[in-house]
Design a protein around this nucleic acid. Structure first.
Lengths: 200, 200
DNA sequence: ATAAATACTGTATATAATTACAGTTATGAA
DNA sequence: TTCATAACTGTAATTATATACAGTATTTAT
């Protein structure tokens, strides 16, 4: 999201929620009422700012003519990232796919396209898209996306202590990965909350 | 869909498409313009009829306050159906989940909740939801939903002739199922076009 | 230090939109 | 036959909505 202010983020999220829950976008008055603005022009100004920042589009002269821009409505799909830097950096985003609330029980921050066969025994195959939530605290038993010294991998977390983390491939041909977080740079990028496979 | 007339179906589909493509529902005028009505009241009458038939809801006094009813907006999830009768019969529908255009490359008519482990080797596990399209012609190599003498099963179609159909479980513990469509009652309910798994 | 952006209030107006009422014509069911 | 439903035309009125203009105060970049 392109440097939205705190207030703009609030407004944007409200609009997003309204569309999701009501099925249609709010009016200027409805926005104003929700946030306690005494003038509909306050909402108008915010909409213009959000449009300027590219997160939504406005259809002129059209009631409720607010739409989320592609940039803000889709969920990014990242390929398997090899090099360092943030996993959601623009150069890693292969495409975006529409948000689909209600399908999975947890929110999805991004999808990761699976490479390799290290998780076949839990039914995660090459080219599957796994849905990742960045904010769920990782816990043993979860399938996690981990970055070890700039290499990103998907494994089951089986042990986590200060000095030892064990990541288990779900494929009997592979061995557990043991990491000492004090020596190696270990970052959990998120927890797998779902899986999507397209038979095309 | 509850006995919509041809015209009502056209109107309903137009509204559905508008919501999907524009992000917000049409007004009475827009409907009228699209269908060549000379009075916005023609659209109003249609909306009332569609509301009466339960396929959409109208918010009074609200511009573009048209929403698809649950009944018409969700995609049904059916459990594994044992007895005869149509697979999409109401008693088989466990729940509906929101339509999610753009995620899968084919349309989805319903989701089937997988029972058993007969397809684990292609990554289809118990309780996965497989997305089914009813209209794609079945062909060898596809994963199909077949009904053999009122028993519903998910298998890979490996051979199809007038007198022999082979359905292969993707699990080496099971054997191929050979069916003679002349002797047994064999119906293909659809082709698997995707898979959804929720890690909850 | 100054300009630009942010976050509003307040007023006003054109127009977008809903929706009621009064009809017409055709069709199929009771 | 007669009544309900479907599928419209035509008119009109209320209200919902977008949106411009003129301000004020605060914060943030240059």
């Amino acid at each position: 999201m392109k440097n939205l202010t705190k207030r703009q983020t609030e407004i944007f999220n409200y609009i997003k929620d309204e569309i999701e829950n009501n099925g249609y976008p709010p009016t200027r008055s409805e926005i104003s009422k929700t946030f306690g603005f005494k003038s509909p022009n306050a909402a108008e100004d915010h909409l213009k700012a959000l449009k300027k920042k590219g997160v939504l589009d406005l259809a002129a002269g059209t009631s409720r003519g607010i739409t989320l821009s592609n940039q803000s409505s889709g969920i990014p799909v990242v390929g398997l990232v090899s090099a360092g830097g943030p996993i959601l950096a623009e150069e890693n985003i292969e495409k975006t796919i529409p948000n689909n609330p209600g399908i999975l029980s947890h929110g999805v921050d991004f999808y990761l396209k699976v490479k390799g066969d290290s998780m076949v025994e839990v039914g995660i195959f090459e080219n599957d898209l796994i849905a990742i939530n960045k904010n769920i605290p990782v816990k043993t038993g979860s399938i996690v996306v981990a970055r070890i010294n700039d290499e990103v991998t998907v494994k089951t977390l089986t042990k986590i202590t200060d000095s030892l983390v064990i990541l288990r491939p779900e494929n009997s041909s592979y061995s557990d990965i043991e990491v000492n977080p004090k020596k190696d740079n270990l970052v959990f990028e998120g927890t797998c909350v779902g899986l999507l496979r397209d038979f095309s």
